[in-house]
Amino acid sequence: MIGNSQPVVLVTGASGGVGRGIALALAAAGGPVWVAARRRPEGQRVADEVDAAGGLGRFVECDVGDRGSVARAVAAVVERDGRLTAVVHNATSGLSPVPVAAPAVSMEDLRDHVVVSVRGSYLLAREAFPHLVATRGSMVLLTSEAGFQGSVRLAPYAAVKAAVRGLARAWAREWGGDGVRVNCVAPLANSPAMEMAMAADPTLAERVLGRHPFGRLGDPVDDIGPVVRFLLSEDARYVTGATIMADGGNFPIC
C-alpha cells in the first residue's frame, strides 16, 4: 500500500489511454509501476514515461484473460521486486467502444467482453491475493458510468462494467479480514476508446458533454490517475467496496 513502504503496483491495459494515465500518476509515488499489456512496444514506451516521471517503469506482457499469462505476470513482479502491493485492472475488450444492437451480439463477442473485464478481474485477484495479503495491499477495478446506467449502443460493455462493481463489493466483504481492500473507479476520460466511441456515434459527444458540469472529459493523467493513487494510498485505508465516480459530476449517484 502506498504510504507505508515503497509501493509495487501492477496496472493492466496500461499501454495507452486511462491505463497509461494511471501508470504515470502512480509514478509520483516513486516505486515500481508495472505496465501490463499485450503490446510490448507501446507498453515499454509507457514504462519509459514512468521512468521519466520519477517512478520505476517496468513492462510485463500480460493477456488478462489467460490464466497462465496472468500468473507469469504476477510472478515476474514478485520475483523482481519482492512483493506486490497493489493491482489496478483497467484493461477492457477492444470491442468496448464498438456499437452493437443487444439482440445481435454474438456469443464470441460477448465472451471477449467478459473474459477481459470480468474473468480478468478474477484471474488477477486469484493470483495477486496472497501477495496482497502479505502487504495488506489493495486492488482497484475500473468500471464506468455505463456500469450504472446501462447503454443503448454498448450493452455488453455496460454489463461487464456493472459486473466488476459487484465483484468489488463482494470481495471487499470477503477480504476485509485479511486487510486487503478493493474498490472501483468509474472514469469519464479522454482516451482512444472514447475517441473511437465518439467517432462511431456522432451524437455521443453532445450526449456526454451537453449537460456535463465542467463541459469536458477528464484527463487520464491529471484527473483519473490521482483518484486511483488515492485509493491505493494510506489515506484510503478505511475505504473498501466503494466506487468513486471520477467523471466531473457527470453521472450523479445518490
Binding site: 470480468v118 456500469g147 446506467q149 447503454s151 455496460a158 456493472a162 459486473a163 459487484g166 463489493r169
Partner: peptide, 29 residues
Amino acid sequence: ADPKDAAGWGAETAVADAVTVMSRSLAEI
C-alpha cells in the same frame, strides 16, 4: 445476496449487478 452477506458470492453478485444494468440498457433500447 444482501450487500452485507456478499462474502463468498462474488460471482453471483457480479451477475446480479450485470443483470441490473442489462435491464437498464434494454429499458432504454
